[in-house]
């Protein structure tokens, strides 16, 4: 399978999107929402989108063999395993029947 050459136009469009999202996230963070979680969700959603764009276009994954997709997904999946299972301990302690741990 030959190498795919991404056109310059794609790079510039992605770049524009990234800069735009940086500006959005910067100003969104200044807003004081009633629930703080909203700030976090906005910031993280934008970060994930930006990272995805970089991976897909700057890092050419969009045009890469399926194996590359698998490798990338595996990396983030394992990170999620580590975070989620660790938190599964700490967060369920709050409902723990062990008295005293609230």
């Amino acid at each position: 399978m030959a190498e795919h050459i991404v056109s310059r136009k794609v790079y510039f469009v992605i770049f524009g999107a990234l800069i735009f999202m940086t500006v959005v996230t910067y100003f969104a963070a200044q807003i004081h929402f009633q629930r703080e979680a909203i700030n976090t969700i906005i910031a993280l959603a934008i970060a994930v989108t930006k990272a995805t764009l970089v991976i897909l276009y700057f890092m050419h994954v969009r045009y890469s063999p399926r194996l590359t997709w698998v490798v990338v997904t595996a990396g983030f999946f394992w990170l999620a395993i580590m975070i989620v299972l660790t938190l599964s301990d700490y967060l369920t302690r709050t409902q723990s029947a062990m008295p005293g741990i609230k």
């Binding site: 395993i81 299972l85 599964s88 369920t92 723990s96 029947a97 062990m98």
Partner: peptide
């Protein structure tokens, strides 16, 4: 990769997490 918590059943880990592991 999903079972490491079984080293920690007595470590004060949450009983629910212990069950998953």
């Amino acid at each position: 990769f999903l079972v490491w918590g079984h080293h920690m059943f007595t470590s004060s880990q949450s009983v629910y997490a212990s069950m998953i592991f």
